[in-house]
Write a protein that binds this DNA or RNA. Sequence first.
DNA 1: CTTGGCACTCGTCATACCCGAGTGCCAAAA
DNA 2: TTTTGGCACTCGGGTATGACGAGTGCCAAG
Lengths: 344, 344
Amino acid sequence: MAGEVRQLDDRKLAVLRAIVQDYVGTEEPVGSKALVERHNLGVSPATVRNDMAALEEEGYIHQPHTSAGRIPTDKGYRLFVDKLAEVKPMSAPERRAIRHFLDGAVDLDDVVARTVRLLAQLTRQVAVVQYPSLSRSTVRHIELVALAPTKVMLVLITNTGRVEQRMVDCPGPVGETVLADLRARINARAVGQRLPDVPGFLEELPAGFEQPDRPTVSTVLATLFEALAEQNEERIMLAGTANLTRFGHDFPLTIQPVLEALEEQVVLLRLLGETADAAMTVRIGREIAYEGLNSTSVVSVGYGSGDESVAKLGVIGPTRMDYPGTMGAVRAVARYVGQILAES
Amino acid sequence: MAGEVRQLDDRKLAVLRAIVQDYVGTEEPVGSKALVERHNLGVSPATVRNDMAALEEEGYIHQPHTSAGRIPTDKGYRLFVDKLAEVKPMSAPERRAIRHFLDGAVDLDDVVARTVRLLAQLTRQVAVVQYPSLSRSTVRHIELVALAPTKVMLVLITNTGRVEQRMVDCPGPVGETVLADLRARINARAVGQRLPDVPGFLEELPAGFEQPDRPTVSTVLATLFEALAEQNEERIMLAGTANLTRFGHDFPLTIQPVLEALEEQVVLLRLLGETADAAMTVRIGREIAYEGLNSTSVVSVGYGSGDESVAKLGVIGPTRMDYPGTMGAVRAVARYVGQILAES
DNA sequence: CTTGGCACTCGTCATACCCGAGTGCCAAAA
DNA sequence: TTTTGGCACTCGGGTATGACGAGTGCCAAG
């Protein structure tokens, strides 16, 4: 029996949808009369009032003052996002603009910088983009350069364009031929592999060298493994903080904790980290674990060069955001960044 | 003859100093009565009123409303900073804390990140730190890696630890021997040179290669020169934007243009760029060319590993800031960062 | 040149008031 | 049973009013 879960009929859902849409547009509590005027619901304000009472009973909307209109609650937005809204695709000109803007990037830093700015501009909110993380990337090339008799520079280049570099102090002089040999063997085994998998393919390597060269080989490999494991390098980029000023009129109280949260890279990383890889994730208000962001919503998604996501990006805005539009922009940008990364 | 420049006697200057100090502390217009109470000036309020009238006449202070106290003008702050204030040195425990905090840094990124956070925390304002600029650095190594028959990756490593990387699309296939030759010749000439000087040493290089290879060599060099010249790559790091919320009660109007300005790296770079290398620079309100920052002050100074400054850092705050304290913090931090860089 | 006195200005705060949007409820209509 | 029109009620926001007080400018005396 239906018992506990009360069903909301279609019209009530339509009313909720209308309330969300209007409130997002006007930022003011929306009343029954205004609703029937702006949306042709085909019923009278009184009927809508009854539906509103039911919706409020169920916790989807709420009225700030006795004699005011209704505003959606977090739960209301949640229902809206899950059931009532469809991602709004970008228009063709918009897609062209995105494409064109991102195509101009010269290197990875630039790709990320352009992406984050673009996203902030499209959504008029705060945008966050995570750098392609090392752990999800694959090896494009590993280079060894002799800088001095016992000094070797190791350069690791990933398929996402990231470059990591380390100095290696070798226990003894390194011959150029040994180095070339080592370079060839490492690349033969490692190229195309995911970073965390690489050590497994190289473990046996020292055994293939002459006894006197083995310590050197081991030292180089140790440094390489270290560079591969370095997870700290999770970097992110922010843009659009100025958009915070549009969030509301109850300013300082709202904006301060948000600004503080945005300064904590750890918080942002965790925020993005909780994003499901493939699907778009929307977290609304209290659903966000971090307190300072309790009155915001986060729309995030993974992006990557192939099917797999190598990092996340997203948007932080007020709970009263334009969800369909924001989700459309986030999805489109993620898709194009993926393409750009795949091409380069 | 003294004629045009009216002299302000010592007591008037003392009054101005007292006004600035009080206003910075209370953020409220300061009246004659409160002044004589808080500072023992040894004269009556009426006398102070006369002095205030004179100071206002000269444009150092100004009253927001007929029946309100006085607040300093930009010109007043300027006089205060130039003649009336002394940089307040950090206390010994503070210096120890700075030292200790910066000593924990593991690489260049970390040094900059720690510095900017520290500065924001010490001054409780917005801090800006510029990365050691490429143009002042020297070449540690330049690496060329063949990724595909016509694709070469160029990696530039500087003595300050920065790594720049570029993809080069060559007009034709590149042989490994040619590439090795080119790599050797470039490094032989460029290592140890300052980045802007490098092109001068490499101009003749294509002529030393066989005719068919010259286009490739030229292409690689062109990309290298581009990377060397890229002034855009002047990166900066920000912290403390949350402190903006303490700036005033007339919020959105004040904070929005500032946030916008802070997002424009170009603006910030120009701001720091105008800083004199050695001496500390203080720019107050309208003295700042960029419109969005017209109601803020900027305290900045160069820092570097030796005598020479390799980059700038500074603080952005309201014109009503604690100048002596801020200047002290900026100077101290710059000094210690310089030491850290010199050591590493 | 300094000081005390005094009238004047004006912004802030508190109070009171009205207006209107929006509600909940009820009885009648569909 | 659901929808509708009517109606009394609530309450936040805006405006007018007035008292208060901090602060000033000016003047005449010290």
